[in-house]
Design a protein around this nucleic acid. Structure first.
Lengths: 214, 214
DNA sequence: GTCTATAGGTGGATAGAC
DNA sequence: GTCTATCCACCTATAGAC
């Protein structure tokens, strides 16, 4: 708490506040206070509020990309790699509960956007790789081929992301207390993998693709 | 454009702006301008900015609840009702692109929350009803019984919600232009129903449930 | 009902001492 | 590097004329 450089403390505090309250309702003074430094100091390390925000996003996104790509490149069957992808996604979200929220906020705000590049990076790497894995499984005959692999990728990622994003609704539905127990999160991770793989492998036959690029 | 009462115009403008920019970065003056009235008039119709926000949320949530419940109560098989639910969700989101965004923002902000009641209402009615439909399908033997119906409901709702929420990422992945064509949205709706039903019906046997309440 | 004008407060950012 | 003090812009909300 004491020996951490101020710059890091500022980034950590900003990460927490931006994801909890969003960009515009977080004030420079709040961040300074949470980081235990004077708010004027933020301008010593960062040009302005927006640059600070971008620095926070970059740290987080690179982490997610790295972790998910690792698992997808493993030398395993498409099914196992998809399981690995979902595990990596959940692990990253558990370790960094701010990430999905901050990321979703950024997408919601993207019209007045700050960080479209990060989103593009994520979509072009991690998301794309999942997509390719599904397509490979289809080519091998492991997965049913009448699904658009890109749609299937959205479904796979979406259900997990939603679990973490829609916590208030999820908590009510699961009737958990103020917090969702870690065990429940792990159960859902397993469920999500089962659900996606069931959908992907259900009724596999050698029929030709029915979907075409929209 | 001319004969619409000011109150409605204000609500419409507020709905658009709040969902596009969020609560705190939308200003009273922006809303007044977009509604074509003086910003001071907002205080004639609404006590303050937050009450206006709540009024917007209430309108939207009641709409979604009504539409989805209609379909789930129809006198059809669980599979058909789930298809109907997804269709209703997509139709509502298409007709009201602001809804999912505003709703997600509200969930992200729920720590400093304005409208927890609406979220609870939605979770306790629409979401719960989907859950019950899945459980019914399991009891009938149509759906595999080794899935937690609540988890399956989250997966079902989540993939559709994510498609609408993560538009910047989806656009890049699908390589569409600035907008996602309506046809693509319809295709995804069909996909989502196929995906969920495949996952729910895959390998149906008379085995006993493997999941237990978390 | 709808407007003009403005009070009162807060936020981002800078200057400059230490 | 870190702080104090402060400027200016802008935002919510109100007072009061029409």
């Amino acid at each position: 708490m004491a020996d951490v450089p101020s710059r890091e403390q500022i980034l950590d505090a900003a990460e927490r506040l931006f994801s909890a309250r969003g960009f515009s309702s977080t004030t420079i003074k709040q961040i300074g206070h949470a980081a235990g430094v004077n708010s004027a100091l933020l301008y010593y390390y960062f040009e302005d509020k927006e640059r600070l925000y971008r620095a926070v996003l970059e740290r987080l996104v690179s982490q997610l990309v790295r972790r998910t790509l690792e698992r997808l490149k493993a030398n395993a069957s498409p099914s196992d790699r998809i399981r690995g992808f979902i595990e990596a996604q959940v692990e990253t979200f558990v370790a960094n509960p701010e990430l999905p929220r901050l990321f979703m906020r950024e997408m919601l705000d993207h019209h007045a956007a700050h960080a479209v590049e990060q989103i593009q990076h994520l979509a072009a790497t991690s998301f794309k790789a999942l997509c390719d894995t599904i397509a490979e499984g289809q080519k091998q005959g492991t997965f049913r081929s009448d699904l658009d692999p890109r749609f299937a990728a959205i479904s796979t990622v979406g259900q997990v992301a939603y679990f973490f994003l829609a916590r208030p609704a999820v908590r009510i539905l699961l009737a958990t207390g103020r917090d969702i127990p870690h065990q429940t999160t792990l159960s859902f991770a397993r469920h999500a993998a089962d659900f996606s793989l069931a959908a992907l492998t259900c009724g596999v036959t050698a029929e030709r693709p029915k979907w075409r690029a929209p």
